[in-house]
């Protein structure tokens, strides 16, 4: 049966206001079942407060073949990083 059920990708947001983060995938017959399966598979250990599911076929992804034209040009642009500031010791999460 599994081969009949489409693949879904699962995104979970944690309790501390983080963004939704990709946690894995699953098979389900439709969107609602995917959401429930995601709850059962990926929030068993108290991980999340919000779940997104999306059909894997609905995701448009960059191709590994295009890796260089896509990402290499930003590799030497150090001036795009805010690394020239002194960060005070009491600023967390930087």
């Amino acid at each position: 049966m599994s081969h009949d059920w489409p693949l879904y990708e699962v995104f979970v947001r944690g309790k501390r206001g983080l963004n939704h983060v990709h946690v894995g995938s699953l098979h389900a017959a439709d969107d609602q079942m995917a959401l429930h399966h995601a709850r059962d598979l990926y929030t068993r250990r108290n991980e999340g407060v919000s779940i997104w599911v999306v059909k894997a076929t609905d995701i448009t992804a960059s191709s590994p073949d295009e890796k260089d034209p896509f990402f290499a040009p930003s590799g030497d642009k150090v001036y795009r990083h805010p690394t020239f500031y002194d960060i005070p010791d009491d600023v967390p999460h930087m």
């Binding site: 944690g14 309790k15 501390r16 983060v21 250990r45 108290n46 991980e47």
Partner: peptide
Amino acid sequence: ALAEAHDDARWAFGT
């Protein structure tokens, strides 16, 4: 990411 910011090292994920 989910495991960060709490002290209880026994639990890998949610606490």
